[in-house]
Every structure is written in structure tokens, then in C-alpha cells.
Write a protein that binds this DNA or RNA. Sequence first.
DNA 1: TGAATATTTAAACAAATTATTCATTTATTT
DNA 2: AAATAAATGAATAATTTGTTTAAATATTCA
Lengths: 193, 193
Amino acid sequence: MRKKESTEKIFSASLRVFATYGYKKTTVEDIARELNMTKGNLYLYVKDKEDLYRKTVEFALLRWQDYVRGAIEDKADPRDKFLIMCHKAVEYLSIDDDFRSILIHDPEIFPMFTDNDPYEKINNNSVNMIKKILKDGIAKGVFRPVGITAMSKAIFSIYKMFIIRMYIRSEESHVRSMFEQTLDLITNGLFKQ
Amino acid sequence: MRKKESTEKIFSASLRVFATYGYKKTTVEDIARELNMTKGNLYLYVKDKEDLYRKTVEFALLRWQDYVRGAIEDKADPRDKFLIMCHKAVEYLSIDDDFRSILIHDPEIFPMFTDNDPYEKINNNSVNMIKKILKDGIAKGVFRPVGITAMSKAIFSIYKMFIIRMYIRSEESHVRSMFEQTLDLITNGLFKQ
DNA sequence: TGAATATTTAAACAAATTATTCATTTATTT
DNA sequence: AAATAAATGAATAATTTGTTTAAATATTCA
């Protein structure tokens, strides 16, 4: 197993285990076992358990972002892009059990924009994706000329809040309909009439 | 909390936690926390962690047996009793997540009839329930005169096997239809024509 | 009430588990 | 075959966990 090729294997296995037991209850050996390797070898890839966890969460966030990006890249209309992005971001939770579980175990993965967000860099990918859509939409004259940076952060905050709420209390279907209504509110405030 | 009244609370909380994490990963403190009490206090009720686990499983098995017994006690026809018992025993897993989980974590809960079965006494409740039904059915002339003890054990073995199989590999719907077919086989071999 | 009894706590300790390191071995590349 | 990279497994340090215990608090009932 060459180093370059194996990192994906390592973090997807690690995600699986962390998602199952949570940070505290998974041992480094649990993950090594899942990978059919020894603990010692794992420490070639990460500094310590916390580093392993952080990199695992980053891996999970990137996979989620790839899914969303892939779903909108061929769309031309900024309004389409925006709506599909919002829906796909939430729908992804239905198809990735591990991602969903890790969000429930650790609500800090999606922190509000605080001073030291460990995942700031990666969350900025999402914010930048939104930024581009807004910019494009404004340029094409289909969005009102809103403040791009602040609005992007606000929108990201809203749907990450829904993502967490929706799956911590997934029984409550009214959360989903609230999401739809909020989305309607955002877009109808955003679109030109 | 008086001692007499609290044992049920203790073991149902304990069941919940053991079912969530499995024996190894749950700590005595996890259970104490769930009960809003300290570890030290728990040791007034049980000898050690293993004793806590054993009593918890016994509690779970008794709850399951009560459910089945309750469903058949008002039935008169031994054939009804038999069929309902078999179905209810399996269906119970759908309504008690903790029971189902603990079975998956610990397949030894339903051991085959080996020399030292820690739950022998409680599993015998089930066997005796079957025995009574068979005896009654034979007396009333609706069952063939089979060997009651051996047949009861055989029947219990069959449905406990299905219970475990069904929920370890619950995706596979063919397991359920196999159960129905096996039940059909048992009853049509058992009933007089 | 208040003495007797039952329940709960919190701290302490020993034993077990876990994270981490490292010298050595095995595999791969050049 | 030499050099480099990857993996091992055993050893150690740090932390967690199971269990005990003395002291505190609550409950019972004479």
C-alpha cells in the first residue's frame, strides 16, 4: 500500500469507525483493525488521535462538498445552481450514514463563525461556492445586488443549521417542511420579481 | 429511590446503555450517568460489571417473555396459542430496539443448549411455555403425541435461531419468508390432518 | 421526635486499557 | 543490491475504568 493511495482508505475507514462509536469510545486500535494494519503504522500518517479525527472530519466534509459541487457544475442558471445546491447539501445526509452519524456525535463540526474554527478552511470551500453563485447571479441580473460575502456566510449558516437540526431530530418532519419554507423565503427574497 | 422500586429503573437504563455501546465499550459510569447516580451506588445493587450485565440480560429476556405470554394467555385453541407465540416472539424485536441491539451485540444470549448456559433458568421459561402448549394440544387431540420435552427444546432452538439470523442480517427479506415457511412446516407436521 | 436503617456520595486505589514511541523487519523502488 | 518507504510488534507512558470505603444524607417507624 503506497502512501499516496492509502490516505483515502485510511480516512474512510476511520470515518466509519468514528461514526459508529464517537470520538471518545473509538480506540486507535479499532481503526487499525478496520484497516488490517497495526496502530504503529497509523502513526505514520497522523500525529495523534486528535489529528486523526480532525483529518477524518476534513475528509468527510470534502466528500460532502464534492457531492454538492458535482451536482451543480453543469447547471447554467444561477437560480438552478442555488436551489440545487441547497437541496443536495441536505439530501446528502440520506446517502452517507457515516457523515450523518458524525454530525450527530459532534455538533462542533459545523461551528458558527467563531474565532477559532478548526474546519474554517474547509467550510470556506462551501462559502466560496455560494459566493460564486451569488456573484454570477448578480452579474447575469437574476439576483438582487446583495453583499456577497456576508450573504454567503448567512446562507451557509442557515443550511448548516438545518442539516444538524434535521438529523438530530429526524423524527420531526416539520423540520423538513421548515427547511422548504425557509428556502422559499431566501429565494423569493433573492430573486428579482 | 427505595431499593425495591428502583431495580426496574436500573436494569432498563442499563439495557439501554449496553444496547447502545455493547459490553466492552460501556463503562459503569455511563450507566450511572444515565441513572443520575454515582458508580458507587450502583454497586449496592450488583456485585460487579459482569453481574450488572447478566442481570440486565435477564431483565431483557423476561420482558420479552412477558410480551409473548401476554399475547397468548387468553387464547383457547392450542393451535392458535402455538402460532401466535411463534409470531409474537419474533415480532417483539420490531418494538424493542434495545432488546434487538443486545442480541446483535451478544449472540451468546441465546446459546444452544450447552453444558453451562448462564441464562438457562430464564430460557427454560420459554421452553416450559412451549411444553404447556404442546401438552394441552395433545390432550385436546389437536396435536400429534410428540415427545414434549425434546420437541419443546427443538422448537425453541428453531425460533431463537431465526430471531438472531433475522436481525443480524435484517436486510435479507428471504430470512423472513424462510421463517414463515419453517413455521408452516412445523405446524403442518404437528397438526392432525 | 430521634434512633435505627437504608441510600447516596465522593474520593481513593489498583488494575486494565489506551495512546504513543521506536528499534527492527519487510516490502518496494531505483 | 543499495536505498527508500512501509509496516510491525513490543515496550512505555498516560489515562481510564472497575471497585472499595468512609462519611454524608435521607427515610422509616417506635
